[in-house]
Design a protein around this nucleic acid. Structure first.
Lengths: 270, 270
DNA sequence: CCCAGATAATTTGTCAAACAAATACCGTCG
DNA sequence: CGACGGTATTTGTTTGACAAATTATCTGGG
């Protein structure tokens, strides 16, 4: 029982990366399943023949990918998370936000994809929706109509519910990542009072109409109405977003301009 | 020279995560740009008021996200990578593959999204393509027709070129992640001789026809032909993929069954 | 003067050992 | 029986050191 773990002879790349691949492989092949607990870091290090800091680099990478989660204490440890689209979408949100920030992506491009994604979701939902789905969607519609709460939040809940009703987890993942991105953008740039009551009212009506089209399983109508609704929604974000590359629009530092130490960026060497 | 970096009072969460957020923030706000060199780990640790292993945990996370890259030596160090969709798509590929492996996603779902994504790309490409785009696309078509090379590779190049021609980087990101996933699947499951010559021939014809439709800026025809082509392509993958949840289909360990040490998974504690 | 090879310097990569912090368990005492 | 405090377990974090990789620099020979 050598149990030596990582093949040391085939050292393809950095150690921590091999460990990451190794653990991902264990999950792929279902030798590790969601909920499983990994051995303590010290034991892992010993079995893999590396040091604890190196193991930790790998574990932190997987934790940041929402694949593992750690906690302290006797019942704590490192556990395999549920492997589903939610964790991926969460990660994607951060990446998309970053791309927007550095102008490697525009709201127009994002919206073009949102439209095709969500119109498709509406079509599929109209065809595949269950009673259960309709119940969930209706709840979001009502939340929207009744509550004074944040418009953006209930709006996104509505769209998320439809994506779920499409019964396509890939579509739901992509749509979800866009929804999370929009929520982040809204939190950053949209004050609740910025959204005109008029817009809210129309949006709510559109939600109701989309709901009915899906309920009637009229996929063509659902698609048309969704498309129309998204055009209205676009205006809300487009108006609020900082303009092009004119002003500096970074994530504003939250009170306490933390910055890297002096000489944060070395000048090119020559 | 306080330059103390991370606000120690607001210790929201683990240290390495705050550092990750901090550096991502510097990139978002463009205080750090692609190509910039970060201070040596030792200096970073000092300016941030933490230890080097902790800094490294953060750096490794960002490296795994294709945001940073490190190398050794006097001209080495840690550098900011180009922030674009490629790195994100690369990461997404791994996540999607994992979801497929653990049956949290089916090829059908993936294909449904591929279809809507690529049909849209074809439509947009037909409208927005430049002469330059057509040149690139044509090269992939020719590579397909002339070369005896791997069918899958040239096929994916073709689709990738069209996604690029759509002039939508978000769409290109999503499509690219799917393409990379398919390439991985093909490497794992599809032997070159598994693809019937008949299928290859028809596929090449379809590529040519799609090319012409895009060249003619006939977006409706491009969409129709792309849809048709994708149906053929689906068969190639569907036939090769391991069936449902019957057989174990993990990433087969490449000669040298590395596994975690004995007792890799602790039994639940109660 | 120029070139080649040895040498030094710089930076990440890795390891070792220890302590701090969080948390659950368990035994004891009121 | 319940509250309390100690103890064990595990991750979180620090310190210090050395190894490995890679480039700059120096030195000697042609």
């Amino acid at each position: 029982m050598t149990g030596d773990g990582l093949d040391r002879s085939r050292k393809a790349g950095k150690t921590y990366k091999r460990i990451v691949e190794h653990i991902r492989g264990e999950i792929s092949s279902k030798k590790l399943r969601p909920g499983d607990r990994l051995p303590p870091e010290a034991n892992l290090a010993r079995s893999l023949g590396v040091s604890r800091p190196t193991v930790r680099e790998a574990l932190k990478v997987l934790e940041s990918q929402n694949v593992l989660r750690s906690s302290t204490g006797p019942t704590g440890g490192t556990f395999v998370e549920a492997i589903d689209g939610a964790g991926v979408a969460e990660y994607l949100k951060d990446s998309i936000s970053l791309l927007l920030d550095v102008d490697e992506l525009t709201l127009e491009e994002l919206w073009e994809v949102r439209e095709v994604t969500e119109v498709t979701a509406a079509e599929l939902a109209a065809v595949r929706r269950t009673e259960q789905d309709m119940f969930v969607i209706e709840k979001t519609v009502e939340m929207d109509e009744l509550k004074e709460g944040v418009y953006i939040v209930s709006d996104i809940s509505f769209h998320r519910a439809i994506a779920e009703a499409s019964k396509n987890r890939m579509l739901s993942l992509f749509a979800g990542s866009i929804h999370m991105t929009l929520r982040t953008l809204a939190e950053r740039y949209i004050m609740p009072e910025d959204v005109l009551p008029e817009v809210k009212r129309i949006s709510q009506q559109q939600h109701r109409l989309i709901y009915e089209a899906i309920s009637d399983q009229d996929w063509a109508l659902a698609a048309t109405r969704m498309r129309e609704h998204l055009q209205l929604s676009y205006g809300v974000y487009e108006r609020a977003m900082p303009r092009g590359r004119s002003g500096r629009i970074g994530k504003q530092p939250p009170a306490g301009d933390a910055r890297l130490g002096t000489g944060q960026v070395d000048a090119p060497r020559r």
